[in-house]
């Protein structure tokens, strides 16, 4: 484990994060939308999800490793599922909190339920949804450290190697790029936020 291995590890870490966050985002968005169409269900679904969410990532990834073995899919699925939660919760919360006046106006104008969702509800919920994306991105960067636990590389390799050989330099070589990666990806999401949030709502978004 030397500094020459860093670019490779960083690349792996980035791949784990981006792929699982992308998958988790899509899944969370779709599930959040579905849940918001049936708010009665959320009383059951959300508590179950938050219990599941409290299972430490290290336990879940370990269990999945026992079941599936050391595959790329094991890491991606585990991280993807964890990345789903914040997006799902925020999508649901964002959609539920869209002011009733806009929905009534949209229906009264003759929008179908789908048009109402895509033209009015989702744009209005977008700041909250992207907030969820930001959370899941930053979390996933740190959870991706666990990939090395089942021998799949990433920045965690340095940290585990450093821990086992009592080499603080190695730990920092993994930890600092991971922290920087979280910061950079978080900033990218902020940039995205600024671009996709409808102009008329930016002031409101900034205040929130």
């Amino acid at each position: 484990m030397t500094i020459q291995d860093l670019p490779q590890a960083l690349w792996e870490h980035l791949t784990f994060t981006v792929v699982s966050v992308a998958a988790g985002f899509l899944l969370g968005l779709v599930l959040g939308i579905l849940l918001s169409r049936k708010p009665a269900l959320s009383g059951v679904v959300l508590p179950v999800l938050s219990i599941f969410n409290t299972i430490p990532g290290i336990v879940f990834i370990g269990l999945l490793f026992l079941a599936w073995g050391s595959h790329l899919a094991t890491v991606l699925v585990a991280l993807g599922i964890y990345a789903t939660f914040p997006v799902l919760k925020n999508t649901y919360a964002g959609l539920i909190s869209v002011d009733q006046q806009y929905i009534e106006a949209a229906r009264g104008c003759g929008m179908s339920p789908a048009q109402c969702l895509f033209r009015v509800e989702l744009p209005l919920a977008l700041p909250t949804v992207i907030g969820g994306l930001r959370m899941s991105t930053v979390y996933t960067v740190s959870w991706a450290v666990l990939a090395s636990m089942i021998g799949l590389g990433g920045l965690g390799t340095f940290i585990y190697a450093g821990l086992s050989s009592n080499d603080n330099g190695l730990i920092l070589l993994g930890a600092i790029p991971a922290a920087l990666l979280a910061f950079v990806l978080g900033s990218l999401v902020d940039l995205l936020q600024r671009h996709v949030v409808p102009k008329g709502m930016r002031k409101a978004g900034e205040r929130a």
């Binding site: 806009y102 106006a105 949209a106 008329g200």
Partner: peptide, 12 residues
């Protein structure tokens, strides 16, 4: 259809 809360879409 005009409503009391106005309901102009803030994103438009």
């Amino acid at each position: 259809y005009v409503i009391q809360q106005i309901g102009l879409f803030p994103n438009m």
